[in-house]
Amino acid sequence: MVEDNEIERDAVVELLGYDDIDIATAGSGEAALSAMRRQPFDCVVLDLRLPDMSGFELLEQMREQAALSSVPVVVFTGKDLSPDEQGRLNTMAKSIVLKDVQSPERLLDETALFLHRVVTQLPQEKQAMLERLHNSSEVLRGRKVLVVDDDARNIFALTSVLENHEVEVVSATNGRQAIDILKNTPDLEMVLMDIMMPEMDGYETMREIRKDAAFRTLPILALTAKAMKGDREKCLEAGASDYISKPVNTDQLLSLMRVWLFR
């Protein structure tokens, strides 16, 4: 846990701690790096504001060291991220949790994932937090989502799943149409973007959408047919917030949607 504010640091240790994991803390970038060189860690929770270097610099240094480059990092920050910072973090950190009302649950959830924690063995109150996060259909209810896919059967299947959770679905069958709908529907809150489409594919469509300042932080989940190595990076570079491979596992999709609509 890398955080220079002692009160925040203690709060996170309290939130995540239990006898199934060991937590080490560091109050500066240099202290964090020397701890990581001394022993292997399975996950790092990082605040971006550090006294001796920025969280970005710490991530850069981790990336340059073979032993540290693959350690999952969860950035836990109260900083308002610019689109440029968001983009940089997407390529360097495994996930970003912004400090807000729902952030303790999210932080517990994200770290549990990377630490392969068995949720049923956690204390009751921690289980209850995760339960709230995963089963809360409240987050989805009434949200307006754009589904972009050139295959009407896929649109139908996704629409059926989402409408069961009271999500309002708008659909488009190509990239151009998707961009027009976005520009004319001010209350759209998320896009599910198929990558493999004729003429204008999902990558190109996402790049186009991100050029408009109004859509810089709009959550876009890319639906990729073949989860090839490098697909994730390619999706994130093109502007996706996250991605999920087809055939879509609906529980996983709903869980991802909740996470992104929380923000």
Rank of each mutant, 00 (worst) to 15 (best):
residue 10 D to P: 00
residue 10 D to S: 09
residue 10 D to R: 11
residue 13 V to K: 06
residue 19 D to P: 13
residue 19 D to K: 09
residue 19 D to W: 00
residue 21 I to T: 07
residue 23 I to L: 10
residue 23 I to D: 04
residue 24 A to K: 13
residue 24 A to Y: 03
residue 27 G to Q: 10
residue 27 G to V: 06
residue 31 A to P: 01
residue 33 L to Y: 03
residue 36 M to F: 07
residue 38 R to G: 13
residue 39 Q to E: 15
residue 40 P to R: 14
residue 40 P to D: 13
residue 42 D to C: 06
residue 42 D to N: 14
residue 42 D to G: 15
residue 48 L to E: 01
residue 48 L to F: 04
residue 51 P to E: 04
residue 53 M to S: 08
residue 57 E to P: 02
residue 61 Q to W: 05
residue 62 M to C: 09
residue 66 A to D: 10
residue 67 A to G: 06
residue 67 A to M: 08
residue 69 S to C: 07
residue 71 V to I: 15
residue 72 P to F: 00
residue 75 V to P: 00
residue 76 F to Q: 01
residue 78 G to L: 00
residue 80 D to I: 06
residue 81 L to V: 05
residue 84 D to G: 08
residue 85 E to G: 08
residue 86 Q to T: 13
residue 86 Q to G: 02
residue 86 Q to S: 12
residue 91 T to Y: 03
residue 92 M to V: 01
residue 93 A to F: 02
residue 94 K to I: 00
residue 94 K to N: 12
residue 97 V to G: 05
residue 98 L to F: 06
residue 99 K to R: 15
residue 100 D to L: 03
residue 104 P to Y: 09
residue 107 L to N: 11
residue 108 L to S: 07
residue 108 L to D: 08
residue 110 E to S: 13
residue 111 T to E: 09
residue 113 L to C: 09
residue 117 R to N: 07
residue 120 T to M: 11
residue 121 Q to R: 15
residue 123 P to H: 09
residue 124 Q to E: 15
residue 124 Q to W: 10
residue 125 E to S: 12
residue 128 A to I: 04
residue 129 M to R: 15
